[in-house]
Simulated scan of single mutants.
Amino acid sequence: MREFEIKITLSTAKKTIPPFDRLEFGRTFTDHMFIWDYTEGKGWHDPRIVPYQPITLDPAATVFHYGQTVFEGLKAYHTKDEQILLFRPDQNMSRLNKSNDRLCIPHIDEELAVSALKQLINIDRDWIPTAEGTSLYVRPFIIATEPYLGVAPSRNYQFMIILSPVGAYYKEGINPVKIAVESDFVRAVAGGTGNAKTGGNYAGSLKASENASKNGYSQVLWLDGKEKQYIEEVGSMNIFFKINGEVITPEINGSILEGITRKSIIELLRYWNIPVVERRISIDEIQQAYHDGLLEEAFGTGTAAVISPIGEFFWQNEKLVINNGETGKLSKKIYDSLTGIQYGTEPDPFGWTVRL
């Protein structure tokens, strides 16, 4: 990797690191952050690590009015031998540039971004929790900062990285979730922004999630925006089904986010010689497989939970209870193997982890 000069200003007023057994996701932030500016005609410039602080923006900044913003999410893990591991950070920065393309944001130098990320984590490495299942959540993001009330790409941007220690996603073991299949609202369509990681996608999903929560369901299963028949994603996760011994996940179609955990699980299943296919799959096919006794498991995948087993779907006033509402064997095996690689307790035959 190339060497990059990143200016570093260390904090003189360190925060008190909270007890790692009381962490709440996304509420606590470390002592430092990374900032990188973009100015039209000058390009990306002045990469720096500074004390964590509020940012000042003009009220007319493009991000507030037209939502020109993208983000990523990944984690740093503390191993038992006192090492720090990252999981496929190059994939996150590559996907960030794909989102940049869709939102008309200038590409970043992916190598510099990964280098900055490593330096930032090293500076704040004391914030990485050591308890089982805990980690340091990493949030890179870009916002449009030009003060201009016109529907056009901004001429100025800021790329930032902030860090947040997070507790174990499953404090008492993996617990299957209940999912409501959404039939009214639409998340995305091909040609839209569904395959970009941008804030508006998530704001637009809140109403459906709120309605599902009122009925006792933790997340929403989105169907395609055209026919409202074909399965796309679960909330902020990709989704997999095990039907009659075969694992099926919706194919990338222009409206589904290309999850890095999703990609890793497909590679892991193929490594194990477990049949896995990417194709269109309808909610009717899932319902029929359930009635035929062939729907063995279902699980969501993403950075936060890695694997989120699904114990029940609610569709057309019918509860489809999967594997008696319990975590399936394959879901547990994938979770154990992938987290083992991430925490350095299992071999990494793929070269996915990066040691700081």
Rank of each mutant, 00 (worst) to 15 (best):
H291D: 08
G43W: 02
K75D: 07
L320P: 13
S154I: 09
E72F: 05
E3K: 14
T345M: 00
L74T: 14
G245Y: 10
K171I: 07
S282Q: 06
D348G: 05
T353D: 07
E210G: 03
I286E: 07
N156T: 15
W352I: 11
Q83I: 00
T56M: 13
E233R: 12
W315G: 01
Y169T: 12
T198H: 07
L57W: 05
I256D: 09
T193A: 13
E326S: 14
I84S: 03
I162K: 03
K319D: 13
L268F: 13
W44P: 10
N175M: 12
N156P: 01
F313T: 04
L23K: 08
G67V: 13
S282T: 14
D124M: 06
I231Y: 05
G225T: 10
G340T: 07
L320Y: 08
R2D: 13
R102A: 10
H65G: 04
Y290I: 03
F64L: 15
N201Q: 12
I123H: 06
P51M: 13
A196S: 15
V50R: 09
K226I: 11
S337F: 08
K7E: 15
V276G: 12
N97A: 09
D109F: 09
I123K: 00
T130M: 11
K75E: 05
E132A: 14
F4Q: 11
D224E: 04
Y170L: 10
L10K: 15
G199S: 12
N253D: 15
G235Q: 01
R187L: 03
N201M: 08
T79V: 01
G340L: 07
E346V: 02
S255T: 06
Y77S: 03
L112D: 05
N156A: 06
N201E: 10
S331P: 00
V186P: 01
P89W: 00
E326M: 10
G199F: 04
K75I: 03
D21S: 14
K332S: 07
S164N: 08
A152K: 15
P54S: 13
L120E: 02
D292A: 09
G191A: 06
A144V: 06
T339S: 14
S213W: 05
G73Y: 11
E72T: 07
L103T: 01
N244G: 10
P18K: 01
L85V: 04
I283L: 09
G194D: 11
A113H: 05
V70N: 14
E346D: 10
Y137E: 10
E246K: 15
F4C: 01
